[in-house]
Amino acid sequence: MNKVMSNKLIIALYILPAFLLIVILIYIPIAVTGYYGLMNWDGIGDKTFIGLANYSELLQDSKFWVSAGNSFLLALFSTISLIGYLAISLVLAGKIKGSDLLRKIYLIPMLLSSVAIAQLWIKIYDPNNGMLNSLLTTLGIESPPAWLANPDFVLYSIFVAIIWQYAGFYIIIYSAALKGIPQSLVEAAKIDGATPIQIAYKIKVPLISGTIKTTIILAIVGSLKYFDLIYVMTGGGPNGASEVIASYMYKEAFSSRNFGYGSAIGFSLLILALITTLIITKLTSSKDDLQY
Rank of each mutant, 00 (worst) to 15 (best):
P182R: 04
I50K: 01
I275M: 03
G168H: 03
I141L: 15
S113P: 05
A167M: 13
V186T: 13
E243V: 01
N54A: 12
D228W: 11
I230L: 10
V205R: 02
I203K: 07
A188M: 07
Y55F: 15
I11Q: 14
P196E: 01
T137R: 15
G130M: 02
F19V: 15
G130W: 07
Y170V: 03
A188Q: 03
L38W: 07
S242W: 08
K190N: 13
Q60K: 15
W65N: 04
Y55L: 12
N129E: 12
K202M: 10
A12D: 09
I191Y: 08
G140Y: 02
I217Q: 07
Y125G: 03
E252F: 09
W164H: 09
N150M: 04
F267T: 03
L132T: 07
I181W: 06
I162R: 02
G34W: 11
S89A: 15
T215P: 01
Y125W: 14
Y125I: 11
V244E: 02
L38H: 06
Y231I: 06
I158L: 09
F49H: 07
Y55C: 08
L178Q: 00
Y261D: 01
G260H: 09
F254H: 08
S286Y: 09
F77L: 12
T137N: 13
L59R: 11
L73C: 06
D288V: 12
A246P: 06
L120Q: 14
V4W: 13
K202N: 14
D126H: 14
A177E: 00
I88Q: 05
D126K: 08
G94F: 01
L25G: 10
S263T: 08
G222E: 04
L132W: 07
L107Q: 06
L278C: 07
K3V: 11
N40S: 14
V154W: 11
L185S: 02
M249R: 12
S242M: 05
L74K: 00
I217C: 10
F153G: 06
D289K: 13
L155D: 05
T214R: 00
I197V: 12
K202Y: 13
A241P: 02
S223C: 04
I220R: 00
T277D: 04
Y85Q: 12
G236L: 03
I44V: 14
A246T: 11
I80Y: 09
A116K: 03
S223V: 06
F227Y: 15
V66T: 14
D288F: 09
N258W: 01
D46V: 12
L16W: 11
G236E: 06
S143A: 15
I88H: 07
F72G: 02
S62N: 12
T79K: 00
L178H: 04
V160A: 08
G222M: 10
F159C: 05
S247F: 09
Y36P: 01
A75V: 01
F159E: 05
V91N: 01
L59E: 02
Y125H: 09
A31S: 09
